[in-house]
Design a protein around this nucleic acid. Structure first.
Lengths: 195, 195
DNA sequence: CTATTTTTTCTAACACTGTTAAGTGATTTA
DNA sequence: TAAATCACTTAACAGTGTTAGAAAAAATAG
């Protein structure tokens, strides 16, 4: 009897309903506003059932981060494919990274948040960006006959500026869009030159 | 009768005991581990009296951040005084900033933390660093006949890298001390050149 | 079709947060 | 010595994450 599949399909659906509800709440109120009873309300269940699908709240946050890293990875891949030289690719990719952060503020904070106990280190997908960037950087290093060992280091140089700038924007909002673009361009071009 | 002073001295002492207890807890368990009952335990009172001295928990965090910003400001001032040319001053100051972050991880997170509702914007001292850096940057801009309007922007360029790099270190610890120094030097020199 | 077992879901509760209200003693004031 | 003020505590509320066990529903067996 195929009811087994129907049931496991329903279970799968509830699981993704939980994630969707969590995602919506995070989008609306930030990760700090997320709690189990709110999720339960949205999926029209009571809180304890969530624990049939996720071991705890952190697991939900981790899953949201995981999906976030996958989305980011997709955006990076597209940016890379749109260009041919590593210079252009790097600029496009970091810009894509930037846009992702701006348009997914809440998820970005879950993915890279400083105070969070979770996520970086917890979810393996957190290393997708580095895996995406390093080959491009290496290609540039090779072109210029540089030591490819410094690849990781260069990656973190880029990442530092972009992440730092995003953080500032997520807290302060004291910066105009123009200033952001200017700082970004400066930084990306500057670091690319040092390669 | 001088008992008035004795009493207000005692009150002042309790207030600073609260802050010291909070500071210790934050140092030991991070800001996430801070709660009112723990503070009360350390000062050998019960939780409600804390509210005689601080309106709420956030006010305590804010005060810790305020003190942090003052300490940071002192470190920056010293670094500035130790040199004469703006190039040297900038490098020394950002290095001091870096060291401060490394040696005061928990407080740094309260001061600049991305997820925190509080502090930046809440405590006026959060603008001390910018006030400390901008004159130096302006001096450099003048020396090179550049537009001094971009001063704030340059400040954020620096701040982005350093804050970004600190964030990475606070979460991940995947970077060696050497890599950090290298990235820092690169970035500071790089940005200074674009000025 | 009824009885039993299994699965799904909820209610109630625990321990822990921040915070407040009301009460209890001690200390000061009149 | 009586009244008023102050310092402090106890008890509680509302909101967290999370768990145990009861209840309801569904699936299975006779």
């Amino acid at each position: 009897m195929g009811s087994k599949e129907r049931i496991s399909r329903l279970k799968e659906e509830t699981r993704s309903n939980i994630l969707r509800a969590a995602f919506e709440i995070v989008k609306e109120e930030g990760w700090i506003g997320l709690n189990m009873r709110k999720i339960a309300d949205r999926i029209e269940y009571t809180a304890p059932i969530i624990y049939e699908y996720f071991t705890n709240k952190e697991a939900i946050l981790n899953e949201l981060a995981r999906i976030g890293f996958e989305d980011l990875d997709e955006a990076l891949e597209e940016a890379e494919k749109a260009h041919s030289t590593p210079e252009e690719q790097l600029e496009a990719m970091w810009m894509a990274f930037w846009e992702f952060g701006l348009h997914n503020k809440e998820i970005y904070q879950i993915m890279f948040g400083v105070e969070m106990t979770c996520c970086i280190g917890m979810v393996p997908e957190s290393q997708l960006p580095s895996k995406r960037f390093c080959p491009v950087i290496t290609r540039l290093l090779l072109e210029r006959n540089r030591d490819t060992e410094t690849c990781q280091q260069k990656y973190f140089s880029f990442f530092s500026v972009i992440h730092g700038l995003l953080s500032i924007n997520l807290i302060g909002k004291g910066l105009t869009a123009d200033m952001n673009k200017q700082i970004l361009k400066d930084a990306i071009v500057g670091i690319t030159k040092t390669i």
